[in-house]
């Protein structure tokens, strides 16, 4: 059976109208229960994932992008003709571009040239952002460095939210994602996992959940290999470590191989009817690894985006 037949209401929202009300639809995403891939687990173990592609812009990144923009405006760093600039491998860029289009500021995005065509198209054609491409051989770290260089040459022209080092990034998740998970599970959540890129989702959601119940255990999901194929995630040991990343916040790190993540993407489509991106596949590999250890518990993770086209389009920049 095709995924679209199993889950007809969970298609990706690609076209968004540029009205201010769109921003009110960021957050409050569905919490999906895994019903089939969980069949071998103990009876009292439940596994859930937040369907973050329902956000305007199609990913979890709408949350931190909006918060960083609003905090920047409050602090007087954006507005009065200033332009936004930041480095991104895709989803944050799409979110900035959408928000910029609605709130009326120009958005410049520095991204590695190997970001897939679909994402580049969404950012540039659909939401009118200016794309600056960095050397793909340096991956996202090259984009970070180029962005800093452009900003430092003209600091008065730009607002640089700097998603890797901006506390507003994780604060968005502490206040929204964590609260939603708590309410949607009626406070029964016992384990939380998220993949780490900027680490904002993991840092903020973990802090929020542990504030409500300090016994909740939190896990970082990381690519097992330095050179990997899990879009959006970072292998911390071989990357520029984000300033907001604090290993003491979570309890354990789980390494997931690219092949495992890809296989899980296929299983989620075939068994759950969900079309998710590779980072969601990695998150679910981690969630299942934790769930298999338990006799009872409520395990929650994040599905950052869908974008199955990016899997198909490997190698087409």
């Amino acid at each position: 059976m095709k995924a679209s037949e199993l889950a007809p209401n969970l298609r990706v929202p690609v076209i968004t109208k540029y009205v201010p009300e769109v921003l009110d639809r960021i957050g409050n995403t569905p919490l999906l229960k895994m019903r089939n891939i969980t069949k071998g687990l103990a009876k009292k173990v439940e596994v859930y994932a937040k369907a973050e592609w329902v956000n305007p812009g199609g990913s979890v990144k709408a949350r931190p992008a909006l918060r960083m923009v609003r905090d920047g405006m409050k602090a007087g760093k954006l507005g009065r003709g200033k332009e936004l600039i930041d480095s991104t491998s895709g989803n944050t860029g799409i979110a900035y571009a959408l928000i910029g289009k609605i709130l009326g500021f120009k958005v410049n995005l520095v991204l590695p040239a190997n970001v897939c065509k679909l994402r580049k198209g969404m950012m540039a054609s659909q939401y009118s952002a200016n794309l600056i491409l960095s050397d793909p051989i340096e991956s996202s770290d090259g984009a970070i460095r180029l962005c800093r260089k452009i900003y430092s040459e003209n600091p008065d022209k730009y607002f640089l939210p700097d998603q890797y080092n901006n506390p507003s990034n994780w604060a968005a998740h502490k206040e929204t994602t964590a609260r939603e998970i708590w309410e949607q599970t009626n406070g029964t959540v016992t384990h939380f996992l998220a993949g780490i890129g900027t680490s904002g989702t993991l840092m903020g959601t973990t802090r929020g959940l542990k504030a409500m119940n300090r016994n909740i255990l939190s896990y970082a999901v990381e690519p097992a290999e330095p050179l990997h194929g899990i879009e959006g995630l970072k292998h911390m040991e071989t990357s520029i470590i984000p300033g907001i990343y604090e290993p003491s916040v979570f309890d354990e790190k789980l390494s997931v191989k690219t092949d495992e993540a890809y296989k899980m993407v296929s299983r989620l489509e075939e068994e759950e009817g969900l079309l998710v991106g590779t980072s969601s596949g990695a998150a679910m590999v981690g969630a299942m690894r934790v769930a298999e250890r338990l006799d009872e518990g409520v395990v929650v993770t994040i599905f950052p985006d869908s974008c199955e086209e990016c899997i198909v389009a490997h190698g087409e920049f």
């Binding site: 991104t88 944050t92 998603q163 990997h228 292998h235 990357s239």
Partner: peptide
């Protein structure tokens, strides 16, 4: 020869 990752890590 250039060895180029097909995807970019980090959001």
């Amino acid at each position: 020869i250039s060895i180029i990752p097909a995807i970019a890590g980090g959001r």
